[in-house]
Design a protein around this nucleic acid. Structure first.
Lengths: 227, 227
DNA sequence: GTCTATACTCTGATAGAC
DNA sequence: GTCTATCAGAGTATAGAC
């Protein structure tokens, strides 16, 4: 199993620096307190500037949220594509993609969390654009699932969209209980989740040895491999 | 498979009527717009009273949220216990509990949604009490999982808490994409989720027929049975 | 218990100097 | 581009009549 890497971010140009500071500060605050409970003064202070200066970059508080969410989708797509790389095995692609998604959610910037958990704060007018990009990301995952389904390795899946919803749910929910420094890294958690969902929790005496072996191998690796 | 029923709510006494109207209105608004984006004036208007009257019942907006969340845990516990009833099979108990939880989340009052998705809005001081009750609910689920684990029907589970987290994630996330009137009822969705997680998505030629049969039976029923 | 009226704070956004 | 200073409005909570 290849170790997951994250794409190296390109150094910010001088003029992007202020924008970057704003989005980073806003991301942290929106994640901690939620969009509506965060004030523009707080964002500006955390970004080491004054409210007036912030307004020069973003015309409104909503615009900050919008930019943050657009960035979240972009980064998620980028991280998953990068993690999969040139891997060909369709099931392994899903495992690697899950790891990348969860690592971004837990240890990356806060934008993905905000996208997922502060969706209601996005004004209705701005929703369409983000929705479109988000749909692309989901379609990408559907493609991975469809590919695995077609490979014959996966159980005949009755509803790929439903499987994606359940998978996203299990993995996104990690953000509500994960605390850095715990027993497992995000990568290990993602592997465990993959193993449970892929091989199931029901054990019956007639279950063939190879299924248990695959399950055990992933679970064991989920303990050993660093994220 | 017994049909899931919901406990019949006892009729509200006259003086509870106003409290009830407030919590119901607040639940709907908090779910739609979030706690911070909802104003006391809106809650009062939706409950057919004026802000001053609302204040007579709840000293602050935070108190409304607190009452709503405490109620959510109470109702969830009640609904799951009721759904399980006298069923003895540990795996079936989990299936029925999942259905009840999801039905409350999708079609019941909005308090459970608010509890799960507006957790950050609860002031730190009030968190402890809700946390304690919520921990009891989670411990109850851990008990169900432990029981299933001990029955020998379940695969040797390495981490019950992790399984609960994944299960809660998949099932709670349904609230973010479920729309009433769609193809499936909450009960059917819960059954599908149960089947996927219980029997796994990986299919291999050596998989014994009985596992596929159980999986198929639940999935087929998930299409037929009304929630 | 519910109303009216209001106090006081904080919010997002802006205007204009530098 | 960033600052200072400020506006107009909305926010929660309250006081006190009925």
């Amino acid at each position: 199993m290849p170790v997951v890497q994250t794409p190296t971010p390109q150094p910010a140009s001088p003029q992007e620096d202020a924008d970057e500071r704003i989005l980073k500060a806003a991301g942290r605050l929106f994640r901690e307190k939620g969009f509506a409970a965060t004030t523009v003064r707080e964002i500006a202070a955390a970004a080491n500037m004054l409210p007036g200066s912030l307004h020069y970059r973003y015309a409104s508080k909503d615009d900050v949220l919008l930019a943050l969410m657009n960035r979240a989708v972009r980064r998620a797509m980028q991280a998953v594509r990068f993690a999969i790389g040139e891997v060909k095995d369709p099931v392994e692609k899903i495992r690697l993609g899950l790891r990348a998604h969860l690592e971004l959610l837990c240890n990356g910037d806060d934008s993905l969390y905000v996208l997922l958990f502060d969706w209601r704060s996005l004004p209705a007018g701005a929703r369409e654009g983000v929705e479109r990009e988000r749909a692309k990301y989901e379609a990408f995952w559907d493609g991975l699932l469809y590919e695995a389904h077609g490979s014959g390795k996966a159980r005949p899946i009755l509803d790929i969209e439903l499987v994606r919803h359940f998978g996203f749910g299990a993995i996104n929910w990690v953000a509500t209980w994960y605390r850095p420094g715990g027993d497992r890294t995000p990568g290990q958690i993602a592997d465990a989740m993959f193993a449970y969902l892929a091989y199931g929790l029901i054990h019956e005496p007639s279950r063939p040895a190879d299924l248990d072996t695959h399950f055990a191998a992933i679970m064991a690796a989920s303990f050993k491999s660093r994220s």
